[in-house]
């Protein structure tokens, strides 16, 4: 595939727009007198175009089999929109502020007093016993503080991906979650529907949740909806 004057790597670089003006002119000059070289260039351009076309309209992510609102039932728009919203928050956050924005907090920040009437979403995505224990410790402290200080609080603990294990019926945190729900009416445990669907596909049966947990469409959808409403997001 090599031309005597133009190495193959130069041809790839030409079609990929990696050459400077002088180098491009050199390749173009060579193609005027070298039909084989011109054919090779056309072939590379054609391959590039085929690859672009092959992935122009990828199929959307599969839908959950049920319980998805009609407006989200087409072409994976729920996930697409959710990711777009996340990206909006994330990229805006990156692009405009070197430090985390007010809606995002570290777990350690939960020890600090939060504004009255505030709402917090705690996100669990890993089945890491130590981390979940730590996150639940923080959540309980937050709930207790809200009672002691008579501060209204709404807390949602959302589990997805591996973190779904925290809310499954065989969860090692089952007793603790049950106690938390009994003691506090302002905490909700929510399981990601996509993670449940993935578990169902993997295990061949519907995963069972703790009675205290409720299924939602998608964790990301919940997180983004809450962020838009002004909730504080905390990664557990």
């Amino acid at each position: 595939m090599n031309s005597p004057h133009i190495p193959e790597s130069q041809l790839h670089a030409y079609v990929d727009g990696q050459l400077d003006t002088h180098e491009r002119a050199e390749v173009l000059d060579a193609t005027r007198t070298d039909a084989e070289l011109a054919r090779q260039l056309a072939e590379l351009n054609r391959l590039k175009e085929l690859v672009r076309l092959a992935y122009q309209n990828p199929p959307p992510p599969r839908q959950l089999p049920h319980s998805r609102p009609a407006r989200l039932s087409r072409s994976g728009q729920a996930i697409a929109a959710s990711c777009l919203l996340t990206l909006g928050l994330v990229a805006g956050w990156w692009a405009h502020t070197p430090a985390p924005g007010p809606g995002f907090q570290e777990l350690s920040q939960l020890d600090q007093p939060i504004p009255p009437g505030d709402r917090v979403l705690l996100h669990i995505s890993k089945m890491d016993t130590q981390r979940i224990t730590h996150a639940l410790d923080k959540a309980e402290r937050l709930l207790q503080n809200s009672v002691q200080q008579h501060r209204p609080l709404q807390l949602e603990i959302v589990a997805n991906a591996e973190g779904l294990g925290m809310l499954r019926e065989d969860s090692p945190f089952g007793d603790r979650i049950r106690t938390m729900r009994q003691q506090h009416t302002n905490v909700r445990f929510l399981a990601c529907g996509i993670a449940m669907e993935n578990a169902r596909l993997k295990e061949g049966r519907e995963p069972k949740l703790l009675p205290e947990a409720n299924k939602i469409n998608a964790a990301l959808e919940q997180i983004l909806g809450r962020l838009k409403e002004g909730w504080i997001y905390v990664k557990g």
Partner: peptide
């Protein structure tokens, strides 16, 4: 498609 969605998420 599902894995791709998960990767982006």
């Amino acid at each position: 498609p599902q894995l791709a969605g998960d990767l982006v998420q």
